[in-house]
Write a protein that binds this DNA or RNA. Structure first.
Lengths: 190, 190, 190, 190
DNA sequence: AATGAATGAGCTTTCATTCAT
DNA sequence: GATGAATGAAAGCTCATTCAT
């Protein structure tokens, strides 16, 4: 039941943003009583926090498997691909990310969760970039990692704002082209 | 008085996000009566929309002057610098951008305003990149423009989430390094 | 509880008219919270509409039983008596009727409800008048029905405007005298 | 200017009822500033009261001329005709009458004005009916007057509720038929 | 465990009235 | 005389939260 409730929260936040998400419409969308929401999640903030936690976990599970590879280039490409995974990079999920990012200034809990997730992912990218320096001439591996991450984040913004005009496939192509541009020696392998 | 009211809105949205911004606290922060807000801006949404319009105008005025240059490289660097201008790239303003982006899924008006602004700015970057192809070997000028824009957008996200740990100067340096990386032939001029 | 709330609405509208009836004073008069009014009736208009529906239903239940009679004259007299029934023709209820009639130009829903109720009742009177034509010389039964109905409506206006100077008993006597005048052959039976 | 303002009030009350009539929309409809309303009429209630006074005066001027006749039957018919005069019996004016009658329970001033007007008019009808007793066999002239007045009032209610389905002409015919019914000996003269 | 009616504080909005110009 | 910006009290309404069942 908890999963069904969180599904409803995701639906509502994506459609109506955080301020438009009410316990009443979440309960109605989940097909449960309003009381059960409070029972399981204590408060509206608890509900939203849990939804964010699940969003971050799903994201983590999308990129973590790629870290198993011994080849740092595969790890980089895996991280980039995860950002455009069909399970991750949907209109709804993007709206959710931006909804939470829009509240981080006011709600420290969202900020903490988002920062930690961002940081963990960035460390993974940084290590991969440092490792790739062994097989390609890279002067600034940290800058490389930042450049790749910043690029995908920026593409998320484009996709969020432009909706269906800017598809997941276009985003992935743009991101991979960008990596090829930054790693010309390894471009043919990407 | 209208300017003073919009100032107060910016203050409130930055501090408490959009849902935490109420007519009561805006009126109190602006030192005016609650009625005058509705009198001038018709509704809370009108008030927020006007604040967004002003934000977008300020941004436009930060990057437009750089378009006067005949040198496309100067235009590119000018656009990047504008994103990290001390008048543009403040904690408050970033919080504002993300607050509005967080509501675009629910409020079409914010989406329209944000998309139009984003598009206009992107066209400027694209033209500069196309022109720079005349003085440097550039295989994909549109990809170049996207890469630069996406990078700065991504840095904004870092700055928004990490606050004072990630300064404006660090962002600017990272963005310019990225441009040098993409345009190695012109790097010494950036 | 819903009945208690509607009672309070009737009380308030009769005393303060529709514009003077607020959710706050209805809630206070009913001894419930303001929120429960919206919870059950959705809006102030829903509350007033429901009060009107109940008023019309009460009225219907006052005249419908008389329709069971086989004697058309008894039906006519029953319809007239219903208009001056102690449960129907009170100061409060009259004020309510006129309050709603005063809003029909602005609120189509009140108009529809009032028209339908008026029409149903008129049909009953018309059929009774048509049937009475079999036992008395009646040249224009529809005109007879209109005359009787218009007379009672006009008496309601007198009673509404003049208050206690014009009593229910006076109204009933006037209305019955009028019927006797219109049906001289049956006058001794009325 | 005052006439133009009162015109606008009539327009607004007819269209939006009393609660929907605001100083703002009256001012806008009259093409004057809001301040001038308060300047001339002191308050919203003053404005509405003045509009009602004018309505009652217009009505009075419609039926008074008929009182000059020496023939009581002509006076009766003149009074009835006045109620269906094209300048008096319009949708807008009817809405206005019912709007004020709807507020009489809450606003004593409207009640007083309406009662006085009603009473004055009733006295005229009563005297005419008493005088007509000299030329026709009338057992109860007061009842006759009440019957005629009540009938026209009732027809006003039908016209108000049914709008254009029930025309002024239909109302007048019904009212005159009713008088013929009540005064069969004089019917051919009506 | 689960419900959903009930609460009430606080929201956005309306609007009669005031007052400096 | 005339204006309309400004006020602020009070309106209708929302909604997170509580609680008896």
């Amino acid at each position: 039941m908890q999963a069904r409730i969180i599904d409803a929260v995701v639906e509502m936040v994506a459609e109506k943003s955080i301020s438009g998400t009410t316990l009443a419409n979440v309960a109605s969308a989940a097909g449960v009583s309003q009381g059960v929401l409070v029972f399981h999640f204590k408060s509206k903030e608890g509900l939203l926090t849990q939804a964010m936690v699940r969003l971050l976990e799903e994201y983590r599970q999308a990129w973590q498997p790629a870290m198993a590879s011994a080849d740092p280039l595969e790890r980089i490409v895996g991280l980039v691909r995860a950002d455009f995974d069909p399970a991750i990079c949907t209109r709804k999920k993007l709206a959710l990310w931006f909804a939470f990012w829009g509240e981080t200034a006011a709600k420290p809990i969202y900020n903490r969760l988002a920062s930690e997730s961002e940081e963990e992912r960035f460390q993974a990218m940084k290590h991969a970039c440092e490792d790739v320096a062994g097989i390609a001439r890279i002067s600034d591996p940290v800058g490389l990692a930042q450049s790749i991450d910043a690029h995908t984040d920026g593409l998320w913004l484009q996709m969020h704002l432009q909706g269906s005009d800017f598809t997941r496939e276009m985003g992935l192509n743009s991101a991979l082209s960008h990596v090829r541009l930054l790693l010309p020696e390894l471009a043919r392998r990407i």
